[in-house]
Amino acid sequence: MSAVPILKVENLYKTFTLPKGGSYTALENISFEVADGEIVAVVGPSGAGKTTVLRCLAGLLAPTSGSVVFEGESITETPEDVAAVFQDYSRSLLPWLSARSNVMLPLRSRGLSRTEARQKADTALASVGLEGREGTHPWQLSGGMQQRVALARALACNPRLLLMDEPFASLDAQTRMDLEDLVLHIHKEFATTVLIVTHDIDEAIYLANHVVVLSKPPATVSQIVEINLPPNRHQIATKENPAFAQLRNHVLTMVRRDPYED
């Protein structure tokens, strides 16, 4: 993996004006880098602004100041090579379209022919384990399967950067583990750079090469923790590793730290 940063966030500030007057600073001077081919997790206490960061990275929200540089260019809208998976799968997939049609939609919007789009969609759905279910509608599928469709939709676009906003938060623990391993598999197979926002510390450490820890709002980067665990992660073996527990304790302590204490 090269050390060229595919994503560079520099001095990101985001302030919201409140409807009744006054302002709320969600993000204060956020800076970090994501190298090509890495998996980076962003964690922080609830309400820290993790989703706000992700929306700025996705080009869905304009920062108040600072820059988000993707592949060397400052972004103003969602870049071509970026795709995302959101937490609420039932409200981000279109229920009146089949899984295949859902996955095809962004491809068709990019100008692919129906045949091409269909082929890519079927391949993407197979790579997330949904072969044979291309014709089903999202509401006919379980939560885990719906999120796989959302993942296939993102993957079919061949993104260089995959953004994930608490993608497994709405799923049960075992499904979560299966999907975490799916992300690792996809990362290995397609060499996609992944940035995952999560409140689940275990998940962050399990998946990532680096963990960006945000503080309470106004959120700054408390620390960027390097995860030195062996690369072939395994739900049981990796979590048995004493280094895992140490890293977990370290990150958890930071996330739970009261900023007014020290």
């Binding site: 996705a58 080009g59 869905l60 969602t78 795709a83 995302a84 959101f86 609420d88 409200r91 981000s92 997939l93 279109l94 939609l105 962004p106 919007s109 990019r110 939709r153 676009c157």
Partner: peptide, 14 residues
Amino acid sequence: DPTLAQSADLFKIH
């Protein structure tokens, strides 16, 4: 639904 709109915006469905 704003969540739906957000996905559509991100995937540039116009």
